[in-house]
Design a protein around this nucleic acid. Structure first.
Length: 498
RNA sequence: GCCCCCAUCGUCUAGUGGACUAGGACACCACCCUUUCAAGGUGGUAACGCGGAUUCGAAUUCCGCUGGGGGCACCA
């Protein structure tokens, strides 16, 4: 890595950063991390975090996607100081509402002869590009329209061709990107081709719109994904043509899928909303994402947002790409679930149970939470931990009702006595249940595992369930006995065929 | 094809020439605890891609190679 001895924030300069998603899909974890780093940086430096929607791709941009991205950001707790729904002095914050700015800037560049009309059609360009690639040559634009005479232009226009505007890149020399995470990156200007800044339809392209907006919005630091590094020298040239010094750049690495390619749909759940629906907590998500490419030291990895703000710095951002895998996120989510106040966990659990079609009520969930809080990695997993509490009937495999190394008959006998004792138990609470059932196991010369296993299946239908005594207590005597009766029927049937 | 970025356990990472027999976390394995499952505790397996150079000394610096990724759109 080259020198990174660039000062993160020059003295006396207000920090203004932005997250600028294209609304062409959901917010995925890579975008979320970029947004998070921008947000942390802004908050750390008491700066301003701006949200700008880059919707100039009219074909792929959708309103629904804007809403989804806003929701995801809000869910993560990444609040923006300027942008959609909150406004700001340097808006509007949708690029489609800023067209006059791009047109004015383009106009100026045209007057100064820093851009030129290109009459090549998209089809022609595509064809030439593909031909070049087929010949294993560099596919860049060949600049054939750069030096057109007025006469040639007139001819082309007479053909009905609508020109696009291209930026005249310098033909020699080099452009250096001073990057806060990568040091100085050099590009030969020969590599920079004359990119289109305004399409024939009058709409700006990305590389032009970002520069104009970042100037107008007084952005001090551009923190974005590595995939934009190659665009940066071109953008620097545009800043220069517009007579404005470029901001500081920080290109953070990309987040890759398990197969080490750019994260995409086929990698499964990669959007923030997918994770929300799966029952991840935003606080876990934020903590985890912060640690993907950044570390505070060699020990700590649990941070509140406030602590992240306090410690975050671009200098410690890792330039190497990292792979997104849920394993650690799951663990961390479990940690956060366990840290939740029981009442809070109950609240968060409710929608998941409803979603699963269970008629869950807060009253019952509150009693359940202590039994399951440390048994969940994601909220959605709570459903199968407690569904039997909310169902009238439970289905299960009768074979499971047989205790370890026991016959159906022996199991039946044990359960029968259990039923009788439970019926007579004066107080049907956790403490008394435990006392009574332990004694019973003793009396029957069964191990705790044998007896409790039978009861667990009888009452929950599952081999894996919350702790038995608490479960019985919440279930209540009546329902517990009713289920045990049913299990006895099953066992009786099994015993007959033994 | 050209340009650019990157390279420490399977994964996230610590590490800026000697304190490294390379540390932590997740995952994995074993044991303990235990009514199942978790949680918790203890221990363990596991990495500096390769080759040169600089140096008394290199995970750390330089060069090359290899590997991975990204870009080369009238997408962003």
């Amino acid at each position: 890595m080259a020198n990174r001895e660039l000062r993160e924030v020059p003295m006396s300069k207000a920090v203004r950063v932005r997250f600028a998603p294209a609304p062409t899909g959901y917010l995925h974890v890579g975008g979320a991390r970029t947004a998070l780093y921008n947000w942390l940086f802004a908050r750390h430096h008491q700066g301003t975090f701006i949200l700008r929607i880059e919707d100039t791709d009219q074909v792929r941009s959708t309103e629904k996607s804007v809403g989804g991205i806003l929701d995801s950001l809000r869910w993560l707790g990444l609040d923006w100081d300027e942008g959609p729904e909150v406004g700001g002095d340097l808006g509007p914050y949708f690029q489609m509402q800023r067209l006059h700015f791009y047109r004015a800037a383009a106009e100026r560049l045209l007057e100064e002869k820093k851009v030129y009309f290109c009459y090549c059609t998209p089809e022609e360009l595509k064809e030439r590009r593909e031909a070049a690639l087929a010949r294993r040559e560099t596919p860049g634009y060949d600049r054939r329209c750069r030096e057109l005479s007025p006469r040639e232009r007139a001819t082309l226009e007479a053909q009905g061709r609508k020109p696009a505007l291209r930026f005249a890149m310098p033909l020699e020399g080099e452009t250096v990107v001073h990057d806060l995470v990568r040091g100085d990156v050099h590009f030969a200007n020969q590599q920079l081709d004359d990119l289109i800044i305004m399409r024939a339809d009058g709409f700006p392209t990305y590389n032009f719109a970002v520069v104009v907006d970042d100037i107008l919005m007084q952005i001090s630091h551009v923190i974005r994904a590595d995939e934009h590094l190659a665009n940066t020298p071109r953008q620097i040239r545009i800043y220069e043509a517009l007579g404005h010094p470029p901001p500081q750049f920080a290109h953070v690495s990309m987040i890759l899928g398990l197969d080490r390619t750019k994260l995409s749909k086929r990698h499964g759940a990669t959007s923030v909303s997918d994770h929300r629906d799966a029952g991840y907590l935003p606080e876990a998500m934020v903590n985890f994402l912060a640690l993907l490419g950044w570390a505070y030291d060699d020990k700590r990895e649990l941070f509140t947002p406030e602590e992240l703000i306090e410690h975050f710095s671009l200098e410690k951002v890792n330039p190497a790409p990292s792979i997104f895998s849920d394993e650690k996120l799951e663990w961390m989510n479990g940690v956060y679930i366990r840290q939740l106040e029981p009442e809070e966990l109950a609240k968060r659990l409710l929608p998941f149970l409803k979603e699963a079609g269970l008629e869950a009520d807060m009253e019952t969930i509150r009693r359940l939470v202590p039994l399951i809080q440390e048994r969940m990695k994601v909220l959605s997993a709570g459903v199968e931990l407690v569904d039997f509490f909310f169902k009238e009937e439970i289905a299960y495999d009768p074979e499971l009702l047989m205790g370890k190394k026991m016959t159906a008959q022996e199991s039946h006998a044990a359960l029968k006595v259990t039923s009788e004792r439970l019926e007579r138990l004066p107080l049907f609470d956790e403490e008394n249940l435990e006392k009574a059932l332990r004694r019973l196991a003793d009396d029957l010369s069964l191990t705790a595992g044998q007896l409790f296993g039978i009861i667990r299946i009888a009452v929950t239908g599952k081999k894996v369930a919350p702790p038995l005594f608490g479960t019985l207590a919440v279930l209540g005597r009546k329902r517990a006995l009713w289920r045990i009766d049913l299990a006895l029927d099953h066992l009786a049937r099994l015993a007959r065929s033994e």
